[in-house]
């Protein structure tokens, strides 16, 4: 599904990613772990198409097609979803209206008509229930005044609505207490199937207790320095990152 080869990227002449290689197949859950400043968030931003970063070398293929030339919205239309570490607050746009816009713009790009309002409302209700989201929450302004947990849950709600092929969860566990963490992880697990894939980006191991990865990669200084199974995460938890440097 996703194939990254020798990816170099940076910002204003400062190289952050220095040759990343990563293969993710449908049905798999991958985790990328690493200390602060290792390039984890840069990697997720570059995959999603953030134009702040410049790709200087290498390739990102999604479903056997290079996506480097695609705009963020085009990548979203192809099925890439990024859950933000710090979701942006947008006063005056309700969660419902936002998701309606996102879904209909995606459909427009595919030459499809808008989803009938009634169907959309039903879908919203179903997904909200799945993620234990209060209905009142949906008529609030997007992320405005949301707690950390609400913001993250809202991200997963959007993911549930957009049904991406590849979901990248960037530090989804940061700022969550254990109950919120469980709800979020539970939501991700319910949405997971053999046709989609998840890339979890995290500093700590604790999220991986709930979203169990098939593969764990350690990112250090812009490179993947070690890959392994889920037991690698436990090892990192125990030993820290220093032994890999």
């Amino acid at each position: 599904m996703l194939s990254i080869k020798n990816l170099h990227a940076g910002i204003e002449n400062k190289e952050i990613l220095r040759g990343i290689n990563l293969e993710i197949k449908a049905g798999e859950v991958h985790a990328i772990m690493g200390p602060n400043g290792s390039g984890k968030s840069t990697l997720s931003a570059v995959i999603a198409g953030n134009e702040t970063y410049e790709v200087t070398e290498g390739e990102i293929d999604f479903e056997n097609e290079s996506i480097l030339e695609y705009a963020p919205e085009e990548r979203a239309h192809k099925g890439i979803f990024l859950s933000f570490q710090y979701p942006v607050e947008i006063p005056g746009v309700t969660v419902t209206n936002f998701i309606k816009t996102a879904i209909n713009e995606t459909r427009k790009a595919k030459g499809l008509a808008d989803v009938p309002a009634k169907d959309l409302l039903k879908l919203i209700r179903d997904k909200a229930e799945l993620l234990e989201i209060d209905r009142k929450f949906l008529s609030r302004s997007l992320n405005e005044g949301f707690s950390g947990g609400e913001k993250k849950r809202n991200e997963i709600f959007q993911m549930a609505m957009l049904e991406p092929k590849l979901a990248i969860l960037d530090e989804t566990d940061s700022g969550l207490d254990i109950d919120a963490l469980k709800i979020v992880a539970n939501g991700v697990n319910k949405l997971k199937n053999e046709n989609n894939a998840v890339l979890v980006i995290t500093h700590y191991q604790r999220l991986l207790d709930y979203i169990v990865p098939d593969f764990v990669h350690v990112l250090h200084n812009g490179k993947i320095v070690k890959s392994g199974g889920k037991e690698l995460a436990l090892e990192l938890e125990e030993k820290g990152y220093d032994w890999l440097k």
Binding site: A48, G49, N50, E51, T52, A71, P72, E73, R75, A76, H77, F81, L82, F84, P87, V88, I90, P91, G92, V93, F98, T101, A102, I103, E105, T106, A109, S141, Q158, L162
Partner: peptide, 21 residues
């Protein structure tokens, strides 16, 4: 970027932001 990553094209994303403003 946040809005675009949800599939909302640049022009529409800017419009939403201004509307919100």
């Amino acid at each position: 970027f946040y809005l675009r990553s949800r599939g909302i094209p640049e022009k529409e994303a800017k419009a939403l932001m201004l509307y919100a403003f």
